[in-house]
Computed example of a mutant assay.
Amino acid sequence: MTAPASRSSRTAGASCAGTNSRRAGVRVALLTSLSRSAGLFGRAAANCAALAAEEINAEGGIRGRPVRIEVIDDPTHAATGLARLQELDRRGGLAAVVGVHSSATFNAVSRYARASGLLYLYTAANEGSRVQNGTLFRLGESVADQLAEAVPALMRESGGRSWYLIGNDYSWPRAVCTHGRRIAKHFGGGVVGERLVGIGESSFDDVLEDIEASGAELVLSSLVGWSSVDFERRFHAAGLRRRVRTLAPLLEESTLEHLGAAGSGVWSCLPYFSALDTAENTGFLRRYRAVFGPWAPSPSALAESAYEGLHLFARAAREAGSPRGGDVSRALRGLTLTGPRGRVSVGADGRLRQSMHLAEASATGFAILAQVASGTDPTEVEWV
């Protein structure tokens, strides 16, 4: 890897362009997955980012400069995502990157972002550790946010205690398995089987046989993208859904659209579902459909996070009086925003404070079961 130029030198070079820089606007990259295994949600994420930019620019942009979104496809491949971002950044003038992609891509890109000083707002679900470092933020929900209430809630509702853990083999699913095992044990449950498979894996016959033989009553699935679709279809076809309940914390609208009845009964826990019955979400969905039409992919927690991330960036840049990474980074802490998912705020640690929602899937969408607290792992507090 060639050594990146410092952010300050590139910012200075851009400012020397004067009116040309102003006319070009504030360039923000959206790094997401438009293809391969995780490509289910990328189109909706790009739409949500474009909608946010349209709204920001209608409000005057950032100090009169319009926000310009440049979409990068990482094709669910970390090294490719990094290479494409580096290529774009070397052209100069890139103010920030909003990331809606896997933790595998995050792990690759974060090293470059730290070294170059590029403002990197990672808005997707993540492991939750080291959430902020300089100009690097993990604004998405953490594994603890998703599982702390969802795991014991499904155990109570189903009466089940024995869990089978299935996920793709990279950092986020491994964190889901670790937290899930610990939380289940805390509430009197246990793990009877576990399997991690490659990203994009589509053959699950041996896994289904293993689940059947294990006697598991509950499944915690951290499969993503097309692997999640293939697994849930096969799980349903095998008849396991009738007796085994599933919690899939990353099951969202883009994935569910490919499942139909095969997804019915699966629980998910995320900060946003399109079924949220609030004035803010109703307005957001109306604007989204007005711009992209009735057949555009539905917004989901992953896609909508790009919308929130862009608005947080713009709000912070306006507060700071500058889109420069260091200035925006300082202004982000303490910011609050009310949007489609409700009120969110950025804490001093750079982590997003937000409500979580427990939901059950059906053939036609999600039904919200409850709003739950976030940010607390029950195994790390003293229970009284």
Rank of each mutant, 00 (worst) to 15 (best):
A153Y: 14
L82Q: 12
A303K: 13
L302S: 15
H357R: 15
F204C: 03
I62Y: 05
R315V: 01
R7F: 12
T80V: 11
L259Y: 07
Q354E: 06
G263W: 10
V219P: 00
S305H: 11
A124S: 15
F235H: 05
E149F: 12
G13R: 15
F235E: 01
R7S: 09
F273S: 04
G215E: 04
S15A: 13
E232I: 12
S228W: 05
A314V: 01
A148K: 13
T19W: 14
R243T: 13
V229C: 00
N133F: 04
L94G: 04
V381D: 01
S228K: 09
S9F: 14
S103T: 10
F41G: 01
A108Q: 11
V100H: 08
V26E: 00
H311F: 01
E127Q: 12
A115W: 01
H236Y: 13
S322W: 14
L270P: 03
P4F: 06
S254D: 14
A45K: 08
L94F: 09
A248W: 09
E308K: 12
F273L: 12
V328M: 06
F284R: 08
A361L: 03
V381H: 03
S129I: 14
T336M: 02
A275W: 08
R330M: 06
L119D: 02
G140S: 09
P299Q: 08
Y164V: 03
G134Y: 10
G283I: 03
A316H: 04
F137R: 09
N133K: 08
V372D: 01
D169S: 02
S227N: 01
L251Q: 09
S142L: 10
L256C: 05
E217I: 03
A79F: 02
E194P: 03
D327C: 06
L218Q: 07
E59K: 15
S103K: 09
T255G: 04
D327P: 02
V71I: 10
L312F: 10
S15W: 14
R138L: 11
L94W: 09
M356D: 00
G159S: 11
E253V: 08
A216G: 00
E380W: 04
R36V: 04
G347R: 09
T364I: 03
S374R: 08
V176W: 13
F366L: 02
H101K: 08
G321Y: 08
L165G: 03
A262H: 13
E149Q: 14
W163F: 10
V344R: 14
S37I: 06
H77Q: 14
Q86F: 02
V291I: 13
G61Q: 06
A150R: 12
E360N: 10
R161L: 09
A184Y: 11
E54D: 10
Q132Y: 08
T338Q: 13
L218G: 00
S116R: 06
S21Y: 14
A52D: 02
I69M: 10
L147I: 05
L40W: 04
R68V: 11
A348F: 04
V100G: 00
E319A: 12
K185R: 15
G326I: 15
L94T: 09
R22V: 11
L40N: 06
T336A: 10
V229L: 04
W295D: 08
A314M: 02
S298E: 12
L337T: 02
P297T: 03
W383V: 14
A104K: 04
A45I: 04
R65K: 05
